[in-house]
Design a protein around this nucleic acid. Structure first.
Length: 558
RNA sequence: GCACCCGUGGUGAAAUGGAUAUCACAACGGUCUUCGGAACCGUCAUUCCAGGUUCGAGUCCUGGCGGGUGCACCA
């Protein structure tokens, strides 16, 4: 990359002038007029040597060697050194991105590594709620970012198929005479069971008894349990397909309590855990954390112990190098405690685990499902968005089947974009009206920008114009100045587990493309038409890859 | 009470300790609807408060104020 070229030149110039510095940071100035890259080394050196930073900058610049990719170097402001890339650099970069195609933006930083990404974690017998939608969106995007490092990536799902929620649903099914093979009945049964558990003492006792039966796999509930579990899990698969996610591994709580218990017992003999009030706990206080129960007084493993079991099971299943888990921020403190305990038990394993949290989504605008008096779940949100997107494409002159896939792509883009446009840990105020306006700052806006480029490419194909980077216009466009940065953005997003860098970049890129598109006619029969077409192709390629990283499809038309 | 996260135009967001804080929505005013108007161009408006560190602070530190989340047998 050019960054390495510049770094090297800086190092050489510094050596020539007798300066030394550990790290050379390069950044893109906010203002494009300030150049393509800038470094603040002169400010640091000036401070260290007690000299005027501008003077130091001038000396460094004077020692610079020439390079074909660099047109000029300037000292600016308090002592920044600004680099302006040569015109010839840009056509080269466009050529390269077109050649790389599908993997444009990818790198090989983790080639040969195995990365497991756990996300979504819905529970059988319970609705797929908005938190699951967020975890799915972020988890899938992180998976794809890792894919772009050259690592082998597998997606894992961890689901609670035992526990009180299951008991509530099974008890509820009995109560309302529901059909365990019907997901809607199960949803109703869960609501019934849940409120009965809160309000009625006898119901509560019965549900607790059901819970015991669930753990014991008792004959009385066996059939309903298995049917309900299978049906709800199958139902989730439909949602995953809509969201364009697939899982390679499924882990269940019912498989995790045994190994979890074993680990805790082992830790107890090593003094990592201790007994307290009849339970087995991990004291987090010495580490600035809090105490949590791993095995309760009844001798049952809690979620904490199962988490340890899960980590163990994952490792058994696939010997990964990194395992990322995405959950809601509510679990931040919980994860700190569990990982601390694990780091004492199995330090090698604990080192490989990363927890990424996402914020909570709140809905504004009180629309859609809430009108019908239902609770808004992740599923209902998805379906409502789909219905509205379908309405939107209705009047397009396209085959029905294509309209359907476009509506799906648009609905998913609207939701995913609003989740991925901000830092992962921040709460999302989702406004369906805004996301559905499909204007400006939105997923469909990005998709639309892409279809405009596709459309030009199609037209060019029809009239026989072929993209070429040979004859470039004199002036470098802002579009070109943004396009070559894509791999840097990808790298940063992956390292920080922050897909929103991609979203922000793509939005800026799309705005620039639309602006260019409005100002320039591409197929104008001039000698530079093939170059402008190459720009359109490079934009389409970058947008497609970028959207893919967000888990969003880029239709050819919409 | 303690801990963690967060406070940026009217609204939703962005910003690697850098240069004049960047976008979008809303509002207002425009655009030969050309290769697709789900677009483009323009106007308007912002870092919670008080100290501190720094050549330089939305960003780091201390103290307030406001919001969210978590703190023993739920997941």
């Amino acid at each position: 990359m050019v960054t390495e070229t510049i770094q090297k030149l800086v190092r050489e110039a510094l050596a020539k002038q007798g300066f030394s510095i550990d790290e050379i940071t390069l950044e893109h100035p906010t203002e494009l007029e300030h150049g393509d890259f800038a470094t603040n080394i002169a400010l640091i050196l000036g401070k260290r040597e007690g000299r005027n930073p501008r003077e130091v900058a001038e000396e460094i610049v004077a020692a610079f060697g020439n390079h074909e990719d660099i047109e000029r170097i300037e000292v600016a402001g308090p002592g920044f050194i600004n680099f302006y890339l040569a015109r010839t650099f840009f056509p080269k970069s466009i050529k390269e991105m077109l050649e790389v195609g599908e993997r444009w933006g990818a790198n090989n930083s983790l080639k040969g590594k195995k990365v497991l990404v756990e996300h979504t974690q819905p529970n059988p017998f319970k609705p797929f709620h908005i938190g699951h939608l967020m975890s799915n969106t972020i988890g899938e995007s992180i998976s794809r970012l890792y894919d772009f490092t050259g690592a082998e990536v597998r997606r894992a799902n961890y689901q609670g198929d035992v526990g009180l929620h299951v008991a509530k649903a099974l008890w509820g099914l009995q109560k309302i005479g529901g059909d365990p093979s019907n997901v809607e009945d199960i949803a109703k049964a869960y609501v019934t069971g849940n409120s009965a558990y809160e309000d009625e003492e006898t119901a509560k006792e019965e549900i607790v008894a059901y819970n015991k039966m669930v753990y014991e796999h008792a004959d009385e509930i066996k059939e309903d349990y298995e049917t309900g579990r299978r049906v709800t899990l199958e139902h989730f698969e439909e949602l995953y397909a809509m969201l364009d996610t697939k899982f390679d591994h499924y882990f269940f709580e019912s498989e995790c309590f045994e190994p979890g218990k074993t680990l805790v017992k082992e830790g107890l003999t090593k003094g990592i855990f201790e007994e307290s009030e009849g339970a087995v706990v991990f004291k987090g206080e010495p580490y600035g954390l809090h105490t949590r129960v791993f095995i309760n007084q009844a001798g049952l493993t809690t979620y904490e112990a199962k988490e340890l079991g899960l980590a163990y099971n994952k490792m058994q299943k696939w010997d990964f190098d990194v395992s990322v888990t995405t959950t809601a921020v509510e679990q931040d403190e919980y994860f700190k405690v569990v990982y601390k305990a694990l780091s004492l038990l199995m330090p090698e394993l604990a080192k490989k685990l990363v927890h990424v949290s996402h914020g909570m989504m709140s809905l504004t605008g009180e629309k859609m499902s809430s009108r019908k008096g239902n609770v808004i779940t992740g599923e209902s949100l998805l379906r409502d968005m789909l219905a509205l997107a379908t309405e939107k494409v209705q009047d397009r002159d396209l085959p029905e089947e294509e309209k359907e896939s476009i509506a799906r792509a648009v609905a998913v883009a609207a939701i995913k974009y609003s989740v991925l446009k901000r830092r992962a840990g921040k709460n999302v105020a989702f406004n369906p009206d805004e996301a559905l306006s499909f204007e400006g700052d939105s997923g469909p806006y990005l998709e639309y920008s892409h279809t405009r480029a596709s459309s030009v490419l199609e037209k060019a194909n029809a009239v026989g114009v072929v993209p070429s980077t040979e004859l470039a216009p004199q002036e470098t466009t802002v579009l070109e100045k943004l396009l070559y940065r894509f791999p840097e953005v990808v790298e940063r997003a992956q390292k920080e587990h922050e897909p929103h860098y991609i979203t922000t970049y793509l939005t800026q890129l799309a705005a620039e493309w639309n602006s260019y598109y409005a100002a320039e006619k591409i197929l104008d029969e001039s000698v530079t038409a093939p170059y402008k077409l190459a720009l359109a192709a490079a934009f389409a390629n970058t947008m497609e890859n970028g959207l893919w990283l967000l888990g969003i499809k880029a239709p050819e038309r919409m």
